[in-house]
Design a protein around this nucleic acid. Structure first.
Length: 484
RNA sequence: GCCCCCGUAGCCAAGUUGGUUACGGCAGCGGACUUUUAAUCCGAAGAUCGUGGGUUCGAGUCCCACCGGGGGCACCA
């Protein structure tokens, strides 16, 4: 069972054949000879005839085999569901009008030694679907569609940004200091350096170093890692788009954001209206802008600001069932009240603006409202989609913010930032007014594909390792290829 | 980390207030069939009921612990 071909000359995909011949008359036979390859997903044997369904990455087509003309007919009817085969033959239409490829010759490319799931019901157990995605992708059409869309969405983002002359870069994933976000990092160790390193929680500080270095429009699409709980919208590793734009501010960035999201929707879906969780979402620009405090007034019915006495804010926190820690200042309390009372209520896209300085250590202070920043988040369908701001460019103020963060860390906040001296040195060389943006790519894909769990848009979501069983599945030490 | 729910053959799936030998289907195996569409028909087979304890004359079913998963909370810019 080992002598399978190393390569095979495939001439057509199933989709190409369907496209070219779908109008054939029932019973008609062409003279077009094709070679197709894929997995045998169904078989209907009928004595001296056999029908099968061959699936490739583009779709399915029926195979038509006859005892008198198909070589090794007995073996053909003995194929297992899931076997990879290649078939060569003429394109024809059966009497019942099913477009088919007649099996004039065929080869096995790989045999499926484990049985495939039920041909009709597929896999219902989510655990099996996520662990054995290689099977799920064959039997679950929605899974195939979601990952095809994912690819198109990311390609569309790249093309739109490229069209605006943004340059794509790759910055380190191994960070000596975790920075650019408030999150607990994964820690790893480099043996030769004898140093602990952190898997990045955000590329932010490196990308801004690149603006200092002269890249005026720069972005990165890549994985970030956060050592936090998992849920339907959180995977420990996820994909982030971060983008920096010199000489621009938060207002420019909001425009770019709404146009980017609406543009991707238009390109990939052909519409800016998507259905999510049973409701329509209108992504067309412009999106509403509202300050955090306006939204709190709307949804919680209370007028508050940084000028509101701490006592009053604490009372409100109690009323809205917000957990308060000792080191929380007024800005943090307002943010907590907003998240508790507003976020889940916001459906059509809203840019929430004017975040307090206290909770925005990398954002530049608002030019008209001291104590607030020029920061925004877009909330869509009750979830945070992105975060952006006019970047803090002043090294002295940035140092103060870092130090305030370190104080919070000392007070018990294990997600607080630490001082990044090299980043401050970069700022010393001068960062012009710059706007920054971060979009959770997985969440954008969920939104555009109507998916309510992130595990359905991540190919291999993080799961607990399977318990090791009795050693029968252990892989023998395969010699590793030499690194060149 | 907390709360609720789920785990029956490779896959889907029934199993009553605890009561002989755990209902079926798909796939697989044997047989019939020259235009099927989840093909159909006939036959035989396949299950330490997630794991380990406990209660009981008797446990898939009740209790406890553990393992894995789902949902929610917490966490999460």
């Amino acid at each position: 069972m080992t002598d399978f071909p190393y390569r095979y000359d495939v001439t057509h995909t199933t989709a190409e054949i369907v496209e070219a011949h779908s109008t054939l008359e029932a019973g008609a036979e062409t003279e077009v000879v094709v070679t197709i390859a894929g997995r045998l997903m169904l078989r209907r044997d009928q004595g001296k005839l056999a029908f099968g369904s061959l699936q490739d990455s583009t779709g399915r087509i029926q195979l038509f085999a006859m005892a008198k003309s198909t070589p090794a007919f007995e073996d053909f009817t003995g194929l297992s569901i899931g076997d990879w085969i290649a078939v060569t033959g003429v394109v024809m239409m059966t009497r019942r009008g099913e477009l088919s490829v007649r099996v004039d010759s065929w080869d096995v490319l790989a045999s499926a030694q484990r049985p495939f799931p039920d041909k009709w019901h597929g896999i219902s157990d989510p655990d099996t679907r996520y662990r054995q995605r290689y099977v799920d992708m064959w039997v679950t059409e929605e899974a195939r569609d979601a990952f095809a869309k994912r690819s198109q969405i990311v390609a569309s983002m790249r093309s739109i940004l490229g069209g605006q002359r943004f340059i794509e870069v790759e910055t380190p994933m191994l960070h000596p200091i975790p920075g650019g976000a408030l999150a607990r990092p994964f820690i790893t160790h480099h043996n030769a350096l004898g140093e602990d390193l952190y898997l990045r929680i955000a590329p932010e500080l490196y990308l801004k170093r690149l603006v200092v270095g002269g890249m005026e429009k720069v972005f990165e699409i890549g994985r970030v890692f956060r050592n936090e709980g998992m849920s339907t919208r959180h995977n420990p590793e996820f994909t982030m788009l971060e983008l920096y734009w010199a000489y621009a501010d938060h207002a420019d960035m909001m425009e770019l954001t709404e146009n980017l999201v609406a543009g991707v929707a238009k390109q990939v879906l052909g519409t800016t209206t998507v259905e999510y969780d049973g409701r329509n979402v209108d992504l067309s620009s412009p999106w509403r802008r509202a300050t955090m405090e306006e939204l709190i007034a709307e949804h919680a019915g209370v007028e508050i600001s940084l000028a509101t006495p701490m006592d009053e804010l604490r009372v409100l926190c109690e009323r809205f069932d917000v957990e308060v820690k000792d080191h929380y200042g007024p800005g943090k309390l307002i943010l907590e009240i907003y998240e508790k009372t507003c976020e889940a209520e916001l459906w059509d896209p809203v840019f929430v603006t004017d975040y307090p300085v206290e909770v925005s250590p990398l954002s530049r202070e608002h030019r008209e409202r001291p104590g607030y920043t020029e920061r925004f988040e877009a909330i869509v369908a009750g979830r945070e989609l992105c975060n952006g701001f006019s970047e803090l460019t002043d090294p002295v103020i940035q140092r103060e913010r870092f130090e305030a963060q370190e104080a919070e860390g000392a007070a018990g906040d294990d997600e607080a930032m630490v001082v990044d001296e090299d980043y401050l040195r970069a700022l010393d060389y001068g960062l012009p007014g710059t706007a920054g943006l971060g979009i959770g790519v997985d969440r954008l894909i969920m939104l555009l594909t109507g998916t309510t769990t992130i595990r359905d848009v991540v190919l291999f979501p993080t799961l607990k390792p399977e318990p090791v069983r009795g050693g029968s599945d252990t892989v023998d030490g395969e010699p590793s290829e030499d690194d060149e």
